[in-house]
Amino acid sequence: METNYTEEERYFRAQKRVEEIKKFYEHLTVYVLVNPIVIVVNLMTSPGYLYFIWSLLGWGMAVVLHGLKVFNFAPFFDKDWENKKISEFMENERQSKNTWE
């Protein structure tokens, strides 16, 4: 199923894609800049309890998932999965509508 997009539609799709990539790099930059501060504050205030690990792991997983989504490398919940689920829900709705009639 190939769609013929106009030049303007292709431009807006490309613009949206660039914006998504830009937001990912902003997210990554904040992660890289803030976590060293969290580590230093942790080590200076309570070196016996290394709570910065939770920030690194939790936020790190969010950055990785964001990157997978932006660069279309998600091994799950990709476009094929979305289309399959949409078709499934539409079929279920169509069947339930037919049983009521």
Rank of each mutant, 00 (worst) to 15 (best):
V34Q: 06
Q15H: 12
K84Q: 11
A62R: 10
I37D: 04
L68G: 01
S96G: 00
E9N: 04
E88S: 09
K16L: 01
T99F: 08
K84Y: 09
T45S: 11
I21S: 08
E7R: 09
I21P: 02
M61L: 15
V41F: 04
L68Q: 02
R10V: 03
V41G: 00
K69T: 10
V41E: 02
F89Q: 08
L50V: 13
S87G: 05
L50I: 14
E19F: 14
W59L: 08
V64F: 12
N42Q: 03
F77M: 09
G58E: 02
K85R: 06
V63E: 01
W54R: 06
T99H: 13
G67E: 01
L56Q: 07
F71Y: 10
P75S: 02
F77A: 13
L43Q: 09
Q15K: 15
V38W: 04
V64H: 03
L57N: 02
E2H: 08
F73C: 12
L50A: 11
F71R: 03
E7W: 02
E88R: 05
A62W: 12
P36S: 07
N42P: 00
K23W: 08
V64Y: 10
K79N: 14
K69H: 10
V34R: 06
Y25L: 12
F89M: 11
E88L: 04
L33G: 03
V32R: 10
H66W: 05
Y31M: 06
D80V: 15
G60V: 08
D78Q: 02
V63A: 07
Y31R: 01
F24E: 00
